[in-house]
């Protein structure tokens, strides 16, 4: 049996690119949907707010694995047969990220004092102008550290995309292991690559958070 070699490492490096690509899709898609849900969550219209709460509760209360299975089989039901794995994985992770980002960002939006919302309103700004010119610039400062922190969760959770047939880092490790059966080596290397991606993000998030805390004092 062949042992772990450069060829395998190259395969893992290539798979890591897919992990990054899927993470980017999940972050952008989840960010767009999540922002919309966050806005709905603070809406003054009751049913809109409750719909957003329900969405967040359902997404946060269901395992990502189940979500992915539902997307995978759901797509077939809706009538698409041969959908590329990256689409199914992308949709699943987008929904997952949106549920968590919505809740993180809701908190950030609401942490901008009510008096700021009122002051903007009293200057006759439209709701859109108020959001983009007054609230978001303040909320984004607060939102950056937890958002970067959540990126780590996204990267790690792309490892579950293998269940819809998407070959990313963890799945690539499994494939290699199936052929050479050196699980310890293979998965240690896989873990090391994840670590190399996630640790800088974690550190960055922590540093941003410290800076924010200092500037708030």
């Amino acid at each position: 049996m062949p042992s772990f070699s450069l060829v395998h490492l190259e395969f893992l490096g290539w798979a890591a690119m897919w992990t990054l690509g899927l993470s980017a899709i999940a972050f952008i898609g989840g960010g767009l949907v999540g922002f919309a849900v966050a806005l709905m969550r603070i809406s003054s219209v009751h049913w809109v707010r409750y719909a957003a709460i329900a969405y967040i509760q359902v997404v946060q209360g269901t395992p990502l694995l189940i979500l992915l299975f539902l997307i995978y089989f759901g797509i077939a039901i809706v009538g698409f047969q041969e959908v590329p794995a990256i689409i199914a994985a992308g949709i699943g992770l987008t929904i997952y990220s949106s549920g968590f980002l919505a809740e993180i960002w809701r908190g950030c939006l609401q942490s901008v004092p009510k008096t700021q919302w009122e002051a903007a309103e009293c200057l006759a700004l439209t709701p859109w102008q108020r959001m983009t010119r007054v609230i978001l610039p303040q909320a984004m400062r607060i939102a950056t550290p937890p958002t970067v922190g959540f990126l780590v969760q996204i990267v790690k959770n792309t490892s579950l995309a293998s269940v819809v047939g998407f070959v990313e880092l963890a799945q690539a490790g499994k494939l290699i292991n199936n052929s050479i059966f050196e699980p310890f080596t293979v998965f240690m290397v896989v873990a090391a690559i994840y670590f190399a991606i996630c640790f800088p993000l974690s550190t960055w998030s922590r540093r941003l958070e410290r800076k924010l805390n200092v500037s708030r004092r």
């Binding site: 700021q116 009122e118 002051a119 303040q138």
Partner: peptide, 13 residues
Amino acid sequence: VGIVFQSYNLFPH
């Protein structure tokens, strides 16, 4: 109508 509050409410950014 312009309004001015006790706590100024300037936009800090």
